[in-house]
């Protein structure tokens, strides 16, 4: 059992196990399920996420509100072009995350990871990396377990909710989960995984939650996109040997404190930030006919 990152690292160090190994054993023991059942359930979730990450790459599906559509398709057809600054892989990862997010806003089926608003970041990153390194399904399942383990620590010691902690808590946490999981997939140590996660949250600390018209849509899609890029960057930094000065457990508590200090107008109320701009207010009026 672990209740913070330090304890998780101790368990890993003492047993010589990876994060996913410790996490699945703990889950199995405390929730009285077998390891096979857990893996099977993760696999079912992966199948849903994979469909969502591919669904709008070639076909636009408009959101329920009618405010957005077609972002995944645009990036998917742009990636690999001469002009593109980011590599094809990074842009594919972004396209996956946007597709997953567009499925969400069009009332399709997704898996909250950790929330619906941040659902594109983790699968966007992990599916891209699995393809890049030819990982088998079992490796992918392990990576999702590691990501979820990082999420449980954040939930226990801070928050994953935009209403409570701003977007840093939702998309920032998803980014940290993805960064740690990618680091482990690429052979990083437990310590490097935690550095990657800490840096991912550090990079978006203070990010507010300001959805236009109170809808999980704008700017959420782009927060998923930057969440992907942030996670990739932090995994690469950690694997290159860069460390986060403040340890993971302290970073997430700081994130929580920052979240609580945010005024309510910047915590999913659809009042401040982008939601409060003339354009944001006009969009609200148009949708709700106020």
């Amino acid at each position: 059992m672990y209740s913070n990152a330090n304890e998780l690292k101790d368990l890993c160090d003492r047993s010589g196990k990876k994060i996913w190994q410790v996490a699945i054993e703990v889950e199995s023991e405390y929730n009285e399920t077998t390891i096979d059942e857990i893996r099977q359930k993760i696999k079912e979730n992966i199948d849903i996420m994979r469909q969502a990450c591919n669904k709008t790459l070639k076909k636009e599906i408009p959101s329920i509100s009618g405010l957005t559509s077609g972002m995944a398709k645009k990036i998917f057809s742009y990636m690999g072009k001469d002009n593109a600054i980011f590599s094809k892989e990074i842009l594919k990862s972004v396209a996956y995350s946007l597709s997953c997010f567009e499925v969400n806003t069009s009332m399709g089926k997704i898996v909250a990871a950790p929330t619906a608003g941040s659902c594109g970041i983790l699968p966007g990153c992990l599916f891209m990396l699995a393809e890049k390194i030819n990982a088998v399904d079992d490796d992918l399942i392990n990576a999702f377990i590691t990501a979820a383990a990082i999420g449980t620590i954040i939930e226990k010691n801070a928050t994953l909710s935009g209403a409570e902690g701003g977007c840093q808590a939702e998309c920032g946490s998803a980014s940290a989960m993805a960064a740690a999981a990618m680091t482990e997939m690429l052979g990083g140590s437990v310590e490097q995984c935690l550095h990657a996660g800490s840096m991912a949250i550090t990079n978006v600390m203070g990010q507010i939650c300001d959805p236009i018209a109170g809808l999980v849509e704008i700017p959420c899609a782009k927060r998923n996109a930057i969440g992907v890029v942030n996670a990739i960057l932090c995994a690469d930094m950690a694997l290159a040997g860069i460390e986060c000065f403040v340890p993971f457990d302290e970073v997430i508590v700081a994130m929580y404190e920052v979240g609580k200090a945010l005024p309510a107008t910047l915590r999913e109320t659809g009042i401040g930030g982008l939601a409060g701009t003339p354009t944001g207010v006009a969009a609200r009026r148009k949708i709700f006919g106020e």
Partner: peptide, 16 residues
């Protein structure tokens, strides 16, 4: 143990 791994990775749901 909180909600465990599937409280984080899940639930499968219709968005948004």
């Amino acid at each position: 143990m909180g909600r465990g791994l599937f409280g984080i990775l899940g639930p499968p749901m219709i968005g948004p």
